[in-house]
């Protein structure tokens, strides 16, 4: 058997293939894989960032799973956040993408309008929204509500634990129509006309029927991508939470997992423990991603 062959299907061309992949692989390894490995390593140490790490074994994980109350609060907040904000953003992106695709001429303008907030930084957008949600009686929403008589004293949007998480979810949904939105629009462009025509001949009359029976099954890859994006982003929310709720937020009401690890890393200087939290977060996000893939994978 001739193994070494030159030509389009030979070993020689596999080498060229690897060479082409090399830049991406190297960068991916250096900036994504290596930090994850370093994080896993650091999670078994006690490291205060300025002195050498001290190996402590599973102590960090013990504390994390058995004693850390705040971790549970953070987990609760993050899951609330992910469960509400993730799906809502996802569904809204899809719906808006669908509506916009049917608009024709104004499509580009509306696409830009919906995509723009996600390009801006979370901190900048929070500052803008804080004008609306200011706790002062002269804040925009407070003033409006007081003028029409709904409330008589200003609502402490950023100080009252009941409202802070709501405000953050609202802002992050607004900002979340990002890449998933564009992906869906791209997906809509790639739909085949013949299926829709065939469906119309077969008796479909409403757009919603078309959506459910024809479009959704065709868009499985985009749906998968969008879902993973939204969920992963929802688990990693941090700047918006900090800009609106403060760091740390009052009574940990807006304390997410990332905020929790940030707190340990930079306020308490326990980088080892923070790495442990990061590893746990990585595991959670990965498993959720895997589940979604199973559910939505194209067969």
């Amino acid at each position: 058997m001739i193994r070494k062959k030159s030509g389009p299907t030979g070993y020689h061309n596999t080498k060229i293939g690897y060479l082409c992949l090399a830049p991406y692989l190297i960068l991916f390894f250096l900036f994504t894989i290596l930090p994850v490995l370093a994080s896993i390593f650091l999670s078994f140490t006690d490291y205060d960032m300025l002195n050498t790490p001290k190996f402590v074994g599973f102590e960090n994980y013990t504390y994390l799973f058995l004693e850390d109350d705040i971790f549970l609060i953070a987990l609760k907040n993050t899951l609330t956040f992910a469960c509400i904000s993730g799906p809502v953003t996802y569904i809204l992106s899809f719906l808006f993408a669908w509506l916009i695709c049917r608009m024709g001429k104004l499509r580009n303008f509306f696409s830009l309008a919906f995509y723009a907030p996600s390009i801006c930084s979370g901190v900048a957008m929070s500052t803008v929204w804080l004008y609306f949600f200011s706790s002062d009686s002269y804040g925009f929403i407070n003033n409006l509500l007081m003028n029409i008589g709904v409330i008589s004293s200003p609502i402490q949007w950023t100080l009252n634990t009941k409202y802070v998480l709501g405000v953050i979810i609202f802002i992050s949904i607004w900002m979340g129509m990002g890449t998933s939105f564009l992906t869906f629009i791209a997906g809509f462009q790639g739909l085949s006309e013949e299926l829709s025509e065939a469906a119309r001949i077969d008796g479909i009359r409403y757009a919603t029927q078309e959506l459910v029976y024809i479009i959704l099954p065709q868009m499985k890859p985009q749906l998968l991508f969008g879902a993973i994006n939204s969920i992963v982003a929802a688990f990693g929310v941090f700047d918006i939470a900090v800009s609106v709720g403060g760091f740390p937020s009052v009574d940990y009401c807006a304390h997410t997992l990332v905020a929790h690890l940030y707190d340990f890393a930079f306020t308490r200087f326990e980088m080892g423990y923070a790495s442990g939290v990061a590893v746990v977060l990585f595991a959670i996000t990965y498993s959720v991603g895997a589940i979604i893939r199973k559910v939505l994978a194209s067969d």
Binding site: L159, T161, K162, V250, Y252
Partner: peptide
Amino acid sequence: LNTAYNKTAIS
């Protein structure tokens, strides 16, 4: 302390 203050004074 800020949390306690917040809970008592505002909530």
